[in-house]
Design a binder for these strands. Sequence first.
DNA 1: TCTGGGGTCCTAGGACCC
DNA 2: TCTGGGGTCCTAGGACCC
Length: 436
Amino acid sequence: MFALLDGNNFYVSCERVFRPSLHGRPVIVLSNNDGCAIARSNEAKALGIRMGTPFHEVRARLPEAGVVALSANYPLYGDMSNRLMALAAGLGPRQEIYSIDECFVDMQGLGGDLRDRALRLRERITQWIGLPCSIGIGPTKTLAKLANHVAKEAERRPGSPYPAELGGVCDLGRLPAGVAVGDLLAATPVGELWGIGRQLSAQLQAEGLRTALALARADAAALRRRFGVAVERTVRELQGCACIALEDEPAARQEVSCTRAFGQPVTTLAPLVEAVSEYAARAAFKLRRQASKAAQVLVFIHTNPFRRSDRQYARSATIPLRRPSADTGTIADAALRGLRAIWRPDYRIHKAGVILLELQDASLVQGELAMEGEAAWAGADRLMLAMDGLNDRYGRGTVQLASAGLGGEARSWSMKQQWRTPQYTTRWEDLPVARA
DNA sequence: TCTGGGGTCCTAGGACCC
DNA sequence: TCTGGGGTCCTAGGACCC
């Protein structure tokens, strides 16, 4: 038996914990560069602001509707996520942290009533950290996801076809009297299912498969031939056959990247060198944090594809490293070589990124070092250790590459974040002050 | 004027080999 | 006109997730 727990409107809810005046108001949180709405409060959803809506499309009508727009504050959300996950782990013996605001919990072998257990845990989360959440329980991950969707929608939209009395927890094994699992499946559009996105949803609907129930009753083998193995798995999971296991040991990433759109277009090489240096350094840091090394560095730049009137340009270069590395200098050097090879003047560059590929465990690589110049390579590792230590202790950017520029507002390429809230829980200077 | 970032998996098709 | 068959590996692109 699986549970899926996730935070409701997670980023907005994190902001509300520290600014209670935002409760009851329409609130949206924007993506990097204040580009799109990536989280909406229920009130904002009710106004018809959809996930991913470009901010400039709705901006003009926000004041009239009383909508508060905030820039994304990832340090805050990450810290709140850690607190949420620590409490959610109490739901059962094994936990898979699936994203910043969701986790699966294996409830196999637990005694007692699972629904009651989930209701108590949800209450504790509200009380201890002030985040609203929903919990779905079912025999497969896909059904737990669906149950979670039911719990959330039932609470958010009183007029929805789902039972109103769930209280934020939907256990498919213990539904309200008179409600069957088939009723919930029949009321759920196929596009709401985990693994069915826009394209598949349109194709399945064209075949007459409009609801989760229709899909659950379909011939899994026939659908595999038409739509591939992923859809077959979804069908079997809906039928109650668990095909997707809980992964409580997170696997090391196979690639690590840092990519950003710029606050304004860039036409010269110098700011690109700064940006790519910084992205390379950040990607290398992520690499060290997961104890990996990379054998290839990919760097890309491109113009703004939404600006049809601009001449478009998109190139990438993949640079193999002489030996796998997690050294900021080595990786930045490779990225800059790639950048110089692909950069052309006369284009308005809108975005750049560094992606580290062919990752391997750092400990595997060390065996080869004795072959040549071991001392020098161990020295590079020690330098990185020292740099990460200083940046951890005194704050990000304390020690950095000279090529990344001297920072400050002089960096014309920095992203826009006009409405960023304080890092209440992760920066001493931003600690909230309580008054008696 | 203004449109995110960071991932994973699957499939089709080409290159290559015997 | 006619030109094997089968297997593996790699890559690019598409679809999905949050």
